[in-house]
Simulated scan of single mutants.
Amino acid sequence: MVEIDGHRLALSHLDRVLFPASGHTKAQVLHYYARVAEVMVAHTAGRAASFVRAPEGPQGQSWVAKNPPGGVPGWVPVAPVEHREGVTEQVVIDSTAALVAMANLGAYEVHVPQWTVAAGPGAHDRLVLDLDPGPGTDLVVCCRIAQRLRQLLDADGLTAHAVVSGSKGLHLYAPLHPVPGRAASAYAKGLAGRMQGEHPGLVVVSMARAERSGKVLIDWSQNASAKTTAAPYTVRLRERPGVATPVTWEEVAGCQDPGDLLFTPEEVIDRVAAHGDLLAPLTDDRARGRLP
């Protein structure tokens, strides 16, 4: 039994090995979230979260969960969200306690949309581009493409911030003056199309797997109001526990091997201690740009 933010929480199965390849236990993952929450919560607060639940780790059964799971403490905040199938309640990660409580239930991967519950899906306040390498490409190629996308975004008055996905690719975010999801999606699709036009042998916009060999998919569709993206600082359920980690543009430019920008939970904590939240400008209202 522990107390977090004034809430009592019974932690369970702390010695369970979730990631056999690295030896990370559930206790270590909970400890990571308890420490990283000071920077992570700024990027999840106010947003309806969904989760990849995998109580036994990535080698066991996993599923995407939107509704609050059984056993969630009553003090964990929830918000009504309208979907095509009707209105459902979803958890909002607004505190260290809520983050640890969900991880304690096996909800180790946190995903959030690009809009807040208060503003609604008609007011997206950030743009996201997911650079996903196909067979024959890797994170290094994503970094080169990201540098060009940064230039295009800057020319349109938008400031890009890079986050390695914790899996294979790279996320680019830009803070926005709120716009409807349709407008954000249309702009992101157009930008991805411009990159494909510049580099047709390297970039693809189509989701069709047959077209992705040797190319990087620029997934613009995560700007749709119904879509979510792995939250900054979330653990990713892979063979080893990757983390969606904010990185500097100097690190992006210097990436020569995918391993250069893959970080363990412990390394992310060290980075936060040394540099704070590299993604802090994403939540600064003064940094918001307007879509052209």
Rank of each mutant, 00 (worst) to 15 (best):
T228Q: 00
L282M: 13
G23C: 04
A174W: 08
R182E: 15
E251L: 11
H24T: 08
G276S: 12
P200R: 07
W249G: 11
N67S: 11
I269E: 05
P133K: 05
A188V: 07
P178R: 09
P80Q: 10
A231H: 04
A49D: 02
M1Q: 08
D156H: 09
W249P: 11
D130N: 04
L172S: 06
H161E: 07
H83W: 04
R271S: 04
F263Q: 06
D94Q: 04
D219Q: 10
L158I: 04
T228K: 00
R286D: 04
A123E: 05
H171A: 10
W115P: 01
L152Y: 05
V252M: 03
L152G: 05
T44H: 08
Y233I: 04
T283N: 14
D156Y: 07
R16E: 15
E266M: 03
G86I: 13
V78Q: 12
R271A: 11
E198C: 02
V91T: 08
V78E: 12
V272C: 11
G6R: 05
V163A: 11
L9C: 08
V179F: 00
T264E: 12
H31W: 12
L129M: 14
S50V: 14
F51P: 00
D15E: 09
E251P: 05
T283C: 13
A160W: 05
L170K: 02
